[in-house]
Design a protein around this nucleic acid. Structure first.
Length: 877
RNA sequence: GCGAGGGUGGCUGAGCUAGGUCAAAAGCGGCGGGCUUAAGACCCGCUCCCGUAGGGGUCCAUGGGUUCGAAUCCCAUCCCUCGCACCA
């Protein structure tokens, strides 16, 4: 395949070694406020996949771009090294998670290096090392001291396959499958450690508004996840069982409450189940919270509506969930779809209490009316609108109170696994749970024991210890932390990875944080990104960190697909980055991925695309290597001027696009410039300086994405030092001006083609392109500016125009006719220059001499057709 | 059901936040030509319809509306993708 291509292997190996030797990507601690570019660190599975390649190529290219623009850049990498797969792998291979993990890390680091990613490896972090996880334990202690840790029995999601607890966020879909192994999750009651993220629910929600560097979709997902709802909590008195709290967002419908419902696991339901066989049967055998049908059973009890005093029947119903609201609710079938379905099924009364207007009471017998409206059938509240009624009813009712409910739950971090951060707690018979003192951190993991249960439980020697408080016998907490704890603050550790006395250097963090550009997969939209925001806020409140958000700008990169579907091992449609690197080189892989689509979009991997990218790089290589300034003896003529203008335009466009992370457009521009340069060299002997300028520009514009070949070509072109340190090219070109020029040239060429085609001209002898006279530009400008009803009289006030006589009148009529659509384009001289410079393109195409002339020098019959932005064209056969 | 983002020429995909220069960029595919012994690569052009001097017609999911003028703004409908969902 590559016998025809450039030798990517030697090029890439050479520069990787050179960068390494010279520590090119080192960010010294002394730099001030570097641009912090970060890709989500990977779990070290042992193999880089295309998703990683895309993710890290984006950050690498952006980091290199910013560096060439003169910024100090912080671009680190590390390993999310704890986690269950290592345990499973260790069991399968009869080794231990630690060795396996470090092997994987070594392999992946090697692959990253062969991709040419410019990381500061001296800042590498690995979460499974005691040096790192010590600070997870420290964090746990700090949270504990701040009252943000709680231990409680909890119904938890238990994955029988992974033998561990999962956070709500790790349970996926309606079928409730484990996010890692896709097995159904069960419920278990266990003593768990929780981090009280709910204390920050409001701030986590409200601060999303200001995160305008984040995609709306991610912010929306977090909003949904937090799920704040304003409503009213009110007390119903349940006969014989006392007061029961119920939450509602629609207290305005309380006059329509015709039943009361309890979750099957509500304490009252449990009591009733113990006394009543039918209820027992329902609770334990019939209730199906996952089913679509609302099921329930009527009890013999009634509840007192606190507003109306009415007695309503009490049901135990499976659609009432104990972890939503209070696990009890008032049923308003007239105005809630689900309550309506239930009431219809159970034969409960349905009455309308909200109407679109007072004299349009809706028929709710067949369906609920769920909109806000005006109250009816509600005594003294009749006639009030829903919103006012909610306020007044809540205010008037002693046992009602405005409250806010959240969907967000506290973050359960206990995992019954070995390969994680030990929770720094000791259980003493006398003192209860006691925190391990800071001086004794880290609590290190004992040697791995291959067992079916939790290996920490089996590590007797490690498990039995002395109580830090009383010195008595005690046992260690054998649970480890959710690995999302590790990743909730790792971005701070990169700032000062060597500090053994603090988790992060505070002053430097205040200077370097937040991460300016964070890049990763959308799958972390809620979990990782929410936890990181939470921990950052806590550290801000407790440790003096002056930032309350960790990531200013977030890019959720799209998938790399094959034939429209996600690459996955199970489908067997995986393209190995390793193979691509070997066959085509890292630069090709990087360039292909980056030019294929916008980074947030999914795109299809195609072998053909990769090949043509490789061909492109080879062509560029040959173009640069065959260029010899000594033999390029062309003049600095109009063609050179055209090429120069194109170079400058390319710089302007590419810079803008790099800046907004739309690499695909920037790269397309750069590739287009290569084409222009090749055409130039084919057409004529190029002007050495111009051509060299073009080549240098292309190489520099490609350097962030294809750094190895760029270094080589930079060297070939006689550049000093590394291209990573070369200043990003700049130009005075204005993008919109450049685009106007391009459009003018494009339109003119098309016009010539059309004339030749339509007029059936076989063999043009001479092509004249006539630029409109100055007075027409003047007239146009006046017409655009003018508010006068008739432009003709306006422009005729200018003597120069008036002196044109009929021609002026005629053009004035044209202007008047198109009055509203007029706009000023290029100035006459700019138009002339652009056409003059582009004349060679037309000459080359039609093999006829092209002359760009001023109107004054042309035949009247031809020049009269010329208008600003539209030269007259005269073709002689 | 709720929320977010979308529906552009054979395909992919810009433009749509600042309405006119948009028959609508770019790439792919297809067609023709050049180069070549030939193929590939490369280069040039065409690729909605009609047209013997740059013209005309129809067009950007569908149907309305605003405007001198709409792919671009507004409304409604349909469809697609993603997230959440028996959430009180």
């Amino acid at each position: 395949m590559n016998q025809d291509g450039y030798d990517h292997q030697s090029v890439e190996q050479r520069w990787q070694a050179a960068w390494d030797d010279d520590r090119v990507y080192r960010t010294p601690d002394s730099v001030s406020d570097p641009t912090y570019v970060l890709g989500m660190y990977p779990y070290p599975s042992g193999k880089l996949h295309m998703g990683h390649v895309r993710n890290y190529t984006i950050t690498d290219a952006y980091a290199r771009f910013r560096r060439m623009q003169g910024d100090n850049v912080l671009h680190p990498m590390g390993w999310d090294a704890f986690g269950l797969p290592a345990e499973n792998a260790a069991k399968e291979r009869d080794t231990n998670p630690r060795d396996w993990t470090f092997d994987c890390i070594d392999t992946m680091r090697g692959q990253m290096e062969s991709m040419g990613f410019g990381y500061d490896w001296e800042r590498e972090i690995t979460t499974c090392t005691p040096e790192y996880y010590k600070w997870n334990q420290w964090l746990f202690r700090r949270l504990y001291e701040e009252g943000l840790v709680e231990q409680r029995d909890a119904e938890v999601n238990w994955c029988p396959d992974c033998e561990t607890v999962l956070a709500d966020e790790q349970v996926e879909g309606e079928a409730e499958l484990c996010w890692r192994c896709d097995n159904p999750v069960e419920q278990r009651e266990l003593e768990q450690w929780f981090l009280k993220i709910t204390e920050y629910a409001d701030e986590l929600l409200d601060d999303l508004e200001a995160l305008d560097g984040w995609p709306e979709s991610v912010r929306q997902m977090q909003r949904n996840w937090i799920g704040r709802q304003y409503g009213t909590e009110l007390t119903f008195d349940v006969e014989g069982h006392g007061p029961v709290e119920a939450f509602t967002t629609r207290v305005d419908t309380i006059y329509g409450a015709t039943f009361f419902a309890l979750a099957p696991d509500h304490p009252i339901s449990q009591t009733l189940a113990a006394e009543d066989d039918e209820i027992h049967h329902f609770v334990h055998h019939e209730a199906d919270p996952d089913g679509d049908e609302p099921n329930g059973i009527k009890t013999s009890l009634t509840a007192t509506n606190p507003v109306t005093g009415q007695e309503i029947p009490v049901f135990v119903a499976d659609f009432v969930l104990s972890d939503v609201g209070t696990g009890a609710l008032m049923g308003v079938p007239g105005h809630d779809t689900r309550d309506h379905a239930f009431a219809s099924k159970m034969g409960v009364e349905i009455i309308p209490v909200i109407a679109p207007s007072e004299d349009a009471v809706p028929d709710v017998s067949e369906g609920a009316y769920t909109d806000d409206g005006v109250l009816v059938n509600s005594d003294s509240y009749n006639g009030l609108d829903s919103e006012t009624a909610r306020d007044e009813i809540t205010a008037d009712t002693d046992v009602a109170e405005k409250t806010t409910q959240y969907r967000l739950r506290d973050w359960g971090i206990s995992r019954q696994r070995y390969w994680g951060t030990p929770i720094p707690v000791v259980r003493c018979n006398d003192c209860g749970p006691v925190l391990v003192p800071e001086s004794e951190l880290p609590v290190e993991l004992p040697a791995f024991i291959n067992t079916t249960g939790n290996p920490l439980d089996a590590a007797d020697e490690w498990k039995h210890t002395a109580c830090p408080e009383c010195g008595g016998d005690a046992v260690r907490e054998t649970d480890t932390m959710d690995t999302f704890v590790d990743s909730s603050w790792y971005f701070l550790r990169y700032v000062s990875p060597d500090r053994s006395d603090v988790p992060f250097d505070l002053d430097r963090s205040n200077d370097w944080m937040p991460v300016d550009q964070y890049v990763g997969g959308i799958e972390h939209a809620v979990m990782h990104l929410l936890y990181s925001r939470f921990i950052t806020k806590v550290l801000s409140d407790t440790e003096g960190l002056e930032h309350r958000e960790p990531f200013s700008n977030l890019l959720a990169q799209g998938m790399v697909q094959l034939d429209g579907s996600k690459m996955s091992k199970s489908k067997g449609n995986v393209v190995s980055p390793q193979r691509i690197i070997e066959e085509y080189g890292a630069d090709t892989a990087r360039l292909f991925i980056m030019q294929a689509a916008q980074p947030e979009r999914a795109f299809d991997w195609t072998e053909e695309g990769v090949r043509s990218t490789y061909v492109f790089l080879t062509r560029l290589w040959n173009l640069v290597n065959s260029f010899d300034p000594a033999t390029a003896a062309g003049d600095d003529d109009s063609v050179a001027a055209y090429v120069r203008a194109e170079i400058d335009a390319t710089i302007a466009v590419a810079t803008e696009e790099y800046d907004s992370l739309t690499f695909n457009i920037a790269l397309r521009e750069a590739q287009g410039l290569v084409r222009t340069l090749r055409q130039y060299a084919e057409y004529t002997d190029p002007h050495a300086e111009t051509f060299e300028y073009g080549l240098n520009t292309v190489v520099q514009l490609l350097a962030p994405v294809a750094p190895h070949i760029a270094e080589s070509l930079h060297e070939t072109l006689g550049g000093d030092g590394y291209i990573v340190d070369v200043a990003w090219p700049t130009s005075d070109a204005d993008r919109s001006f450049a685009e106007k020029r391009r459009r003018l040239v494009q339109n003119t060429r098309e016009d010539v083609r059309q004339i030749i085609d339509v007029a059936g001209i076989d063999n043009p002898k001479q092509i004249d392109v006539v630029v409109a006279p100055e007075w027409k530009y003047q007239a146009l400008e006046i017409a655009v500016e003018s508010d006068a009803p008739n432009v003709i009289s306006e422009i005729m006030q200018i003597p120069e125009i008036r002196s044109q006589g009929d021609a002026a009148a005629s053009y004035g009529q044209d202007l008047q006719a198109e009055r509203e659509a007029l706009s000023v384009g290029l100035a006459r001289t700019d138009e002339y220059d652009a056409l003059e410079a582009a004349a060679w393109l037309i000459e080359r195409e039609f093999e006829a001499p092209v002359t760009v002339i001023e109107a004054a020098a042309a035949e009247q019959s031809v020049s009269k057709k010329a208008t600003p932005g539209r030269p007259a064209i005269d073709i002689q056969e």
